[in-house]
Amino acid sequence: MNTIDASGILAISTRLQRLSEQLRKDGLQIYKLYDIDFEPKWFPVVYALYHKKQLGIVELAAEIGYSHPSTISLLKELEKQKLIRSKKDKNDERKRLVALTANGEALVGRMEPVWQHIKNLLTEVTETENNLLKAVNEVEENLRRQTFLQRALRDLDIPDQ
C-alpha cells in the first residue's frame, strides 16, 4: 500500500482526483475505439447543452457545477472544435447564449451509443457493496448543507469569513 492509500480519509481528495483521472484517460481511449475525437472533460458542457438546448454561460456553469472561469475555458475549446456556438441574448446584450452547432448535434448522435456503453461499464465498476454513486450523492448533499470550510470554522470557533 502506498503512502496516499495508507493515509485513509486524509487523502480523499487526492484519491478522488486519481480515480477521476483514470476514468477520463480510459474514457478518451473508449471514444477512440469508436473513432470519435472527443475529450471527456467536454462531456458536462456538451451533455447539458444537448438536453437544455441553449443556456447562458452563468446558467451553464451552474448546471454543470463548475466555476465560471472553468466553464469559459471549456467553451473556448468547444468553440474552436466548432461543436458549440454563442450569440448575444436579444433580451440582455450583456448575456451570451451557448448552444450546440449542427456538428455538435451530429457528434452527440454518434456518441449516444458510446455513452450507453460507458454507462454500463461505469455501473459495473461502481456497483459495489458501498455503491460509489450513492456515496458521492450523499457527500455532495452533506457539503450543500455545510461546506468543508464552514465545518472547519465551526470546529475552530472562528466566525464565517
Rank of each mutant, 00 (worst) to 15 (best):
P40M: 13
N91S: 10
K53A: 08
K82E: 10
T101C: 00
L121T: 13
I64V: 01
I72S: 02
H51R: 06
Q54R: 15
E63Y: 01
D37G: 03
K87I: 09
E127K: 15
S86W: 13
A48R: 06
D37H: 04
T101S: 01
L55K: 12
E63V: 03
D37E: 06
N103A: 11
F43G: 10
I72E: 02
R94T: 13
G109M: 02
K119A: 12
H68P: 03
G56P: 01
A62D: 12
H51F: 08
K95Y: 02
T126A: 13
R85S: 14
L49K: 03
L121C: 05
M111E: 03
P44H: 14
P113C: 13
Q116M: 14
E59R: 06
A61F: 04
H68C: 06
E63G: 01
A102I: 10
A48V: 07
L75V: 05
K88L: 14
Y50Q: 10
Y66V: 08
Q116K: 15
E112Q: 15
L83Y: 00
P69R: 15
V58M: 05
H68N: 14
A48I: 07
I57H: 01
N103H: 12
T101L: 00
K119Y: 15
H68L: 12
H51D: 01
H68M: 10
K80D: 05
S86E: 12
P44K: 08
D37I: 07
P113F: 13
L74F: 07
W115I: 09
W42F: 14
F38K: 08
T123N: 11
F43P: 00
Y47I: 08
L107M: 13
R110G: 01
S73V: 11
L74Y: 08
K82I: 10
S67A: 09
K95C: 05
V45R: 04
K95F: 04
I72H: 03
L74A: 05
L97A: 14
V98M: 05
A61P: 00
K119T: 15
L74D: 02
P40Q: 11
L121H: 05
L97R: 09
N103S: 09
N103P: 00
H117Q: 14
A102K: 11
K52S: 04
T101Q: 00
D37T: 09
E79R: 08
S73Y: 12
I64Q: 00
K52R: 06
L60N: 01
F43Y: 14
V46H: 00
S70D: 14
